[in-house]
């Protein structure tokens, strides 16, 4: 059955996984951080802006996944027309190129969400330490960016 999937099919699966996995991670991360942000704002609405930034941090992985998916779709010609008929090997390579941001996006967004929750706890008690608090979830972003770079480099360097 797998042998019946065309090269374009594998490439499309890669783009879909980049969006789905990274998007799911971000949805979890933003959701859990949003719960914590709501808890703080219930008691102190003046901290809304600070906790909102914390909540948004795990949302970037979803955007990275979307970016890689756009590049992939554009590369195979599904976006903007002029699509080429890919062989299976090229399609699988594109799928492989999409996986870093998909998998790392999922895991890093979940962990970033939990770190954001802890950082929101800092902001709740010591709002003047917002800068330091934001660094902790921001650290997790490093690995999503590394995965994004590799996915973009790999997708763009594959010859179609």
């Amino acid at each position: 059955m797998l042998s019946s999937i065309s090269g374009n099919g594998w490439a499309l699966l890669g783009a879909a996984l980049a969006v789905i996995l990274a998007g799911c991670g971000s949805a979890y991360g933003v959701g859990v951080a949003g719960q914590a942000a709501s808890g703080v704002v219930t008691e102190d609405p003046s901290k809304f802006a600070k906790v909102l930034i914390m909540q948004l941090l795990p949302g970037t992985q979803g955007i990275y996944g979307l970016l890689v998916a756009f590049i992939t779709l554009s590369k195979v010609g599904l976006l903007g027309g002029g699509g080429a008929e890919l062989d299976v090997a090229t399609g699988l390579m594109i799928l492989g190129a999409c996986l870093p941001i998909g998998i790392v996006g999922l895991v890093s967004a979940m962990h970033q969400g939990r770190t954001s929750v802890a950082a929101i706890g800092i902001v709740a008690k010591k709002p003047d330490q917002f800068g330091k608090a934001m660094l902790f979830p921001a650290m997790v972003e490093t690995y999503a960016i590394l995965a994004l770079l590799i996915s973009i480099l790999a997708v763009t360097s594959i010859q179609v």
Binding site: A36, G39, E43
Partner: peptide, 8 residues
């Protein structure tokens, strides 16, 4: 949610 509210 509850823990964040308690922190505040």
């Amino acid at each position: 949610y509850a823990v964040a509210r308690i922190r505040a």
